[in-house]
Every structure is written in C-alpha cells, then in structure tokens.
Computed example of a mutant assay.
Amino acid sequence: MRLKDKIAVVTGAGSGFGEGIASRFAREGARVLVADINKEAAERVAAEIGGTPAHVDVSNGASVAAMLEWVQAELGVPDILVNNAGITHLPTPMEEVAEEMFDRVFAVNCKSVYLTARAIVPKFKARGSGVILNIASTAGVSPRPRLNWYNASKGWMNTATKAMAVELAPFGIRVNALNPVAGDTPLLPSFLGEDTPEMRAKFLSTIPLGRFSTPEDLANAALYMCSDEASMITGVCMEVDGGRCI
C-alpha cells in the first residue's frame, strides 16, 4: 500500500503501459483516474481496477483542463500525474513523414506535457507537493533510424523532464521520466513496421536481456518513482530497457 490515499491521474491508461501503471497504482492504494482518448477502454480499465474513467484528448488544452477540473471536484487535487499517452509514426524516411503526422506526434507526445503542467502545476505549488512522471522512450536516448520524429519527441520529453525538475524542486514538486524499450503493447506493430517473427527477433537481438518490456516492468518502476521512497529523486530519466541503451 505504498500509494495509500494518493490520487493519481494516468493518461493513456486504456491499454499497454498506462493500463499496467494504473492497475498497479490501484493495488497499492491509490485512487486512480483512468484517462484515455478511447472512452470505452478507459471505462473497461477503471471497472477492472476500481478506478474512475475519464475521456480526454491530451493534445487539446480545453479537454485537459476540463479533465483536471473534474477530477479535482470528484476526487480532490491529484498527488501524482503520469503523462503516459503517446503515439508514433510508422518507420519511414524522415523526409517522407506527412506534416499532419508530424504535428500529431508532437501534439500528443510533447504538447500534452505542457498542457497538463499548465493545468496542474499551480495546484501542486499551492499545496507544496506533487509528483509528475513522464513516459518517454529509449528512442529519445538511443534513436533508431526511420523513427526520426518520434525519436525527437521522446528526446524532448527527457529534456523537458529535467527542466521541469529544476524549476519545480523549490516548490516540493518532483519530476522524473521513464525510458522503456519497446513493449509487447498495441504500439509494437507501429515500431516494427510489420509484426512478424523475423522482425521481432531482429528487434530483440538489440536488447541484452533478450525480451520486450512489459506493462508490469513499467508499473514497478513507476510505482517506485511516484512513491515517497523516491522522495530524493528528481530530474532522473531512468531506462527500463533490458540494457538496450548500454
């Protein structure tokens, strides 16, 4: 019960890493807002873990503000915010990625961090505490070819994490990030281009521990980073990657 009585908002919690994090937080005693652009997925996960569902488009400022105002009215001011929602473009030569896709990747992966911060940081400052965890990627640490703009968006998240941590530390607010290697989640086929045994084997050959990350791996790391056990840790972008970035 390491998060007993904490209020946690997890975006992109309708599947994959976000679902794993939301589920683990609930088991550890948190009251979890399961936020996702897929309303049905958010409702399913919330029902399974005893959380509260929320339909949100994290790339839209009005949607984000409405979600955080609603959760404050329903549950109280959050203690924890996990910026997990993210998308990628298919493996493509950088100059061939459509402008609309570029804009969408940066809106979901980067602008969302700004929008949630704009809405929640004043509440954290007023209380003198709060935890923000950004889910970035090994792509932002050790980029892969043909995922150029996704790589760049996750590198942005890592830099934003450190900048946020330095600025917000005097207010008692911690900000960290996790850099997972690709997991066997709904996004995996987008990273691979084509989800075949051969492509999986090729990808796995770059991970020293020899397996993809799992929602449980990310949930375990997120739990520590967001718990009071990590009260001295801020500005850290921790790799959860089986040695991929060594």
Rank of each mutant, 00 (worst) to 15 (best):
M1P: 12
K4Q: 13
A8F: 13
T11R: 03
G20M: 14
S23N: 04
V34D: 15
N38P: 13
E40I: 15
E43T: 11
E43K: 14
V45N: 11
V45L: 15
G51Y: 10
G51M: 07
T52L: 15
P53L: 09
A54R: 07
V58P: 05
M67F: 06
L68Y: 15
W70E: 11
Q72E: 13
A73R: 10
G76A: 09
G76N: 11
N83Y: 09
N83Q: 09
T92N: 00
E99M: 11
E100K: 15
M101R: 11
F102N: 09
D103W: 07
R104I: 07
A107G: 08
A107M: 08
V108C: 03
K111E: 06
T116G: 03
A126R: 04
G130F: 08
G140A: 03
V141K: 08
P143N: 08
P143E: 11
R144N: 07
P145A: 11
P145N: 09
A152G: 08
A152D: 06
W156K: 00
A160Q: 02
A165M: 02
A165H: 01
G172Q: 02
G172K: 00
N176Q: 01
A177M: 04
A177L: 01
G183P: 01
G193M: 06
E198G: 06
M199D: 01
R200Q: 02
K202I: 14
F203G: 00
I207L: 02
R211H: 13
F212K: 02
S213C: 00
A222D: 08
I233N: 09
G235F: 14
G235I: 14
E239V: 00
V240Q: 10
D241M: 04
